[in-house]
């Protein structure tokens, strides 16, 4: 309880700093928390905002589905086969730390402007962390499980479905959490650079028309939604790890 109260105090401090910055920098640079919240309410009531919102989050949904399915498959294959895992891991790690924004022009040239480019760009952000986490999860499964599976003469498919995936689920959720954040980032960067729809476009458009309150309201709403989803995944993550430990 006290911890919750402390966190609330910290949040209040952040809002106070925001207000302080507003007084310091003026209306042109930073809208005050009050004005931003007001504008956020206006946005929430306008249908055009929800159109952009749907655009961004459906792109996120598709990208995340591709990232999770693709990443898990890659991770499972590499985790179960030792040599290919050893071969691939450093490649994956260096791909992970690559600034993938440099590849965005390539994606645009392949997919053209629009939804599919955003989905692809989001997916390449998310797929690698999911693959790395899945591979790590499969590799750290206790060998006795595999021996048991061999004794029970499970087929490859049964092994994956009844042993590997259940044992790896806590780590998979951790990977999903990281993957979610990066995929959202990828989709938004995609929208900020070359797009006519979506929340990223809305932010860029607002700065073009020097509409600071709208810009900040969109960022605030985005951050709130992202934090809520991430907090939900974090809760799940901790519970699953707790159950295993």
């Amino acid at each position: 309880m006290r911890q919750f109260f402390d966190s609330l105090v910290f949040a209040a401090v952040l809002v106070a700093i925001w207000q302080g910055l507003h007084w310091f920098a003026g209306d042109i640079a930073i809208a005050s928390p009050g004005v931003t919240a007001e504008r956020a309410m206006v946005l929430l009531g306008s249908p055009s905002f929800w159109g952009h919102f749907r655009e961004t989050f459906s792109a996120l949904g598709y990208a995340l589905a591709i990232a999770v399915l693709g990443g898990m498959t890659i991770g499972l294959v590499l985790g179960l086969h030792r040599l290919s895992g050893e071969v691939a891991e450093p490649i994956l790690v260096s791909l992970y730390s690559l600034p993938k924004i440099t590849l965005y022009p390539l994606i645009l040239l392949i997919f053209g402007l629009g939804m599919s480019a955003k989905v692809a760009f989001g997916a390449i952000h998310g797929i690698i962390p999911v693959a790395i986490f899945t591979m790590g999860a499969v590799k750290t499964i206790a060998p006795v499980y595999f021996k048991t599976a061999r004794v029970l003469q499970l087929s490859r498919r049964q092994l994956v479905a009844t042993v590997v995936i259940p044992a790896a689920i806590p780590e998979l959720v951790s990977g999903l959490r990281v993957g979610f954040s990066l995929t959202l980032l990828g989709v938004l960067i995609g929208e900020m650079f070359a797009s006519q729809r979506g929340l990223g476009f809305l932010v860029m458009n607002a700065i073009g028309t020097l509409d600071v309150p709208t810009m900040m309201a969109v960022v605030l709403l985005l951050a709130l939604v992202a934090v809520m989803i991430s907090a939900g995944l974090l809760y799940l993550d901790r519970r699953l790890h707790h159950r295993v430990a």
């Binding site: 911890q3 402390d6 966190s7 105090v9 910290f10 949040a11 920098a25 042109i28 640079a29 930073i30 959490r177 990281v178 979610f180 954040s181 959202l184 980032l185 938004l188 960067i189 900020m192 929340l199 990223g200 932010v203 860029m204 607002a206 700065i207 020097l210 600071v212 810009m215 900040m216 969109v218 960022v219 985005l222 951050a223 992202a226 934090v227 989803i229 991430s230 907090a231 974090l234």
Partner: peptide, 25 residues
Amino acid sequence: RAIDPFLATYYAIPFFAFYPLLVVI
């Protein structure tokens, strides 16, 4: 302990959305 939840969800916030704001400032 108070700041922990903020750190844990920090990377979920799409930072680049703040970039235009920083440019304005």
